[in-house]
Every structure is written in structure tokens, then in C-alpha cells.
Write a protein that binds this DNA or RNA. Structure first.
Length: 282
DNA sequence: CAACCGACCTGTTCGC
DNA sequence: TGCGAACAGGTCGGTT
């Protein structure tokens, strides 16, 4: 569930604590069904070999992925999945429940990856600027223009909500922020992506950046049923600013209409039927 | 290839 | 009150 703002917050928290430090060793928690956390990694032994003794030069983010740049021209990649938490803590403390992997670091800390639902993943990519494949443009990159978004939407047959969730189209949006962005742009989630006007596309582009920026400033969203915490173990604040997500049946903060839910692309989409009208429907 | 759907996973919520 | 069913969702892989 951590989406772009949550991953960005964690990255910013970890950056001053971890850059310049060495990874002393890698430890995999025993798992009776095999280690799902390394399902895409080379192999536990090979990963250990690649990481042991490496210095963390920098930490960056691409979409929802955290990228640890290492001094062997390689990149340790971590995706938090639905329930993943990543935080440094003092060695010697008991490992938290659902710890999948941890890294002993230079100094008295270790970096712990906790993930109850096992959707998260750790792997290694060769290359100084390697990044996970098949990701669309980064919302804050210069080349993500309204024009580029227009091209992305025009070529799609899917609904706008489904396209916003597709990481190959745009990287970083998940269910929370796609709902919130559509609300602020006044666009119904069931609209076909290709049906948006130029004006609507420009508005959507603006709101993607605006909502993500606000959410980063609020240190992410810790929703009712979600255990997101930042790199310091603290919850975010953006849940206080949500307009539609998980507000089914409650009054819209703008027009007081009842927030509704519809199923799209296997996800629940929340929207205001009055602020986000569907053309052709009364 | 784009679109769609089931599988993965477990803590929480819902319904009888 | 209790217990099982349903739900939550990011990504992958298989199918159409």
C-alpha cells in the first residue's frame, strides 16, 4: 500500500542515517514456504555475496520502489508491497514479528524489513543507474508534461481509474492517490481514459503533481486499516485530508453528496457523484 | 500488445 | 458471542 508519497517519505528518513554506511551482513528470516521476499532475487547466497561489505552511496526512489545505490555499481531494490515497513533500529533489540530480512549495518544499527502480508520484495540489479523495468514516467520529472499524459491516455481503451493504477502508464499512484487525484480533477473514475478533453487532461496532470506533493508534505497516508509508518516508525498525516478514499456513504466535503464506491480493475474506486459527473448519466 | 482476472498473503471486518 | 466468509490491494503471470 505504500504509494509514491509514503516511499518518498521513507527514503528521505533513511537517507541521512544510511548514506555512507556499509552493509556488514544480510539475514533472512526462516520461512517454511521458502523466502517469498527474495522471489526475484538472484539467490540468498548470491545476494549475500553481492551486498556484504558494500557501501550505500545514495538512496533514491522510482515509482514505489526504493533504490539503494551501492559501491559495486549495483542497486539493492526494495518494494514494500501492501504491508511492508522498513526502518533502522538498534541491534540487540528482539526482531519484530513478520521480519522477512534484515541488514546489519556499520555502527550499531540494522535495517529491518517487516512485511506481514508478504507482498513486498527485495532484489538486486546490476548497474549504477539500474531501475525496475516497465515503469512509466515519474510524475515529478520534467518530461512528464500534460502533453505526455494526453498521449498516454489517448492510446488506451481502459477506464481512467485503471490507467492511473497502471505503473506502466504512470509510476507511483496506487488506490488512495488515484481516487484523490480524480476527485480533485472532477473526473469520474468510470470515464474511458481516451474520452478526457484537453482541458481535463491538463487539470488531471496538475492535480497528480499537487496531490502527491501535498501528501509528501504530510508524510504520507496512514489509513484506518493500514499500518503504514515512515522511516522513523511514525504514522503519516494525509489521511486527515482525504476527500473520497474510504469515505463511502459520508458527505462530500464540497457538496455534501454521499460518497460512492464502484469496483474498477479489481479495486474499489471512491468518488463523489456530484463533483465527478459521468457524461450521459443524469 | 492491451486488457482482464486469478493468485499471492494475512490482519481486520462483516454477517449469520 | 463466536466463527467462518469476505475484504483489503501491488504486482505477476496466464489467458483472451
Amino acid at each position: 500500500m505504500p504509494e509514491l508519497p509514503e516511499v518518498e517519505t521513507i527514503k528521505n528518513d533513511l537517507l541521512p542515517l544510511l548514506t555512507g554506511r556499509h552493509i556488514l551482513s544480510v539475514h533472512l528470516a526462516p520461512d517454511p514456504r521458502g523466502s517469498r521476499v527474495l522471489r526475484r532475487a538472484p539467490s540468498p547466497q548470491r545476494l549475500c555475496l553481492l551486498l556484504r561489505g558494500r557501501k550505500i552511496l545514495d538512496i533514491t526512489r522510482r515509482g514505489k520502489y526504493l533504490l539503494f545505490r551501492l559501491d559495486n555499481a549495483g542497486t539493492l531494490v526494495i518494494h514494500l508491497g501492501m504491508s511492508g515497513r522498513l526502518f533502522p533500529e538498534l541491534a540487540g533489540n528482539p526482531l519484530p514479528p513478520h521480519t522477512r530480512i534484515y541488514f546489519k549495518l556499520q555502527g550499531k544499527r540494522r535495517l529491518v524489513f517487516v512485511d506481514p502480508r508478504k507482498f513486498g520484495e527485495v532484489f538486486f540489479l546490476a548497474g549504477e543507474e539500474a531501475e525496475p523495468p516497465r515503469l512509466g514516467p515519474e510524475p515529478f520529472d520534467e518530461d512528464f508534461t500534460a502533453r505526455r499524459l494526453e498521449k498516454i491516455l489517448q492510446n488506451r481503451k481502459a477506464l481512467i481509474k485503471a490507467v492511473l493504477l497502471d505503473q506502466k502508464a504512470i509510476a507511483g499512484l496506487g488506490n488512495i492517490y488515484s481516487d484523490e487525484v480524480l476527485f480533485r480533477a472532477g473526473i469520474h473514475p468510470l470515464r474511458p481514459a481516451a474520452s478526457l478533453s484537453r482541458q481535463e487532461t491538463v487539470l488531471l496532470h496538475r492535480q497528480i503533481r499537487k496531490v502527491l506533493k501535498e501528501a509528501i508534505a504530510s508524510r504520507g497516508t496512514t489509513a484506518a486499516d493500514r499500518g503504514y509508518v515512515d522511516g522513523k516508525g511514525l504514522p503519516g498525516n494525509f489521511q486527515l485530508r482525504l476527500k473520497v478514499y474510504q469515505r463511502h456513504g459520508r458527505p462530500c466535503s464540497v457538496c455534501r453528496a454521499s460518497i460512492q464506491t464502484v469496483r474498477i480493475a479489481g479495486r474499489s474506486a471512491h468518488f463523489c457523484p456530484s463533483c465527478q459527473p459521468l457524461p450521459g448519466c443524469a
